[in-house]
């Protein structure tokens, strides 16, 4: 892990390194620096930009002429891409050293994952403003949260670099289920929530449970190292 300056800086080993007589502004500066360093190490700014680019792509694509399948599946593909970006931002370049010394790390992980997921929802909502998107805002929120949870679970199990495996596998299943549901068939399990209607409480519960599990695990354990 990179060595942080002791004067006016911050370290992950505990609360910001503040003298008892130091002013609150110095403590605040240390905290800000800690957050900035964490964001830098996780490429959070690139992740934010990637989400914006995906949302812009969705906005552009929404103006094309799609058949029914395309209109149904297009938002889901972009939502999944956003979720994989959230998980990719969990990769730590420091590994065990950081893990062994960071009391603030769980809060930073939670903040980053939650913040990026929220950012994805906001960006996609903005992309969908004024155009008709399949499912609408609430379904998009449910899908992004659930798939982000799945990606974060993948990050804790496989590592941030391979966290995309779960969401992309899920994407194939969900895309086919959307297609089959439109024809009145296909799987009706709430675990494939992207294929369920807005009013399906089970789908909300499943997506919420996966999101909560992903957030909890990434907060407590972080992404697996060594990929």
């Amino acid at each position: 892990m990179t060595e942080l300056p002791s004067s006016g800086g911050a370290r992950l080993a505990g609360p910001p390194d503040v003298d008892p007589g130091a002013t609150p502004s110095i403590a605040r500066q240390g905290l800000v620096r800690l957050v900035v360093l964490y964001m830098s190490s996780r490429r959070i700014l690139i992740a934010l930009a990637a989400v914006v680019a995906l949302a812009a792509g969705l906005r552009i694509a929404a103006h094309w002429h799609w058949d029914t399948y395309g209109a149904l599946q297009l938002p889901l593909i972009v939502e999944t891409a956003c979720a994989t970006v959230v998980a990719a931002a969990t990769v730590s370049p420091f590994g065990g050293q950081e893990r062994a010394s960071g009391h603030w790390l769980p809060m930073l992980r939670l903040g980053a994952a939650l913040g990026l997921t929220t950012w994805a929802v906001i960006a996609l909502a903005a992309a969908g403003a004024g155009v008709h998107m399949s499912g609408g805002f609430l379904v998009m929120t449910r899908n992004v949260a659930g798939i982000a949870g799945l990606a974060l679970l993948g990050a804790t199990a496989l590592g941030g670099g391979l966290a995309w495996v779960g969401p992309v596998g899920y994407l194939v299943v969900a895309v086919y289920s959307l297609y089959a549901q439109w024809h009145g068939g296909g799987p009706s399990t709430p675990w494939i929530w992207p294929a369920r209607p807005l009013a399906d409480a089970g789908a909300w519960l499943c997506a919420g449970a996966v999101f909560a599990a992903g957030m909890t695990l990434i907060t407590v354990r972080g992404a697996k190292d060594g990929t």
Partner: peptide, 13 residues
């Protein structure tokens, strides 16, 4: 990049 693998996969899909 860490973002390239998922994004190129989904982009090609």
């Amino acid at each position: 990049s860490r973002f390239m693998t998922p994004l190129i996969s989904i982009g090609v899909f």
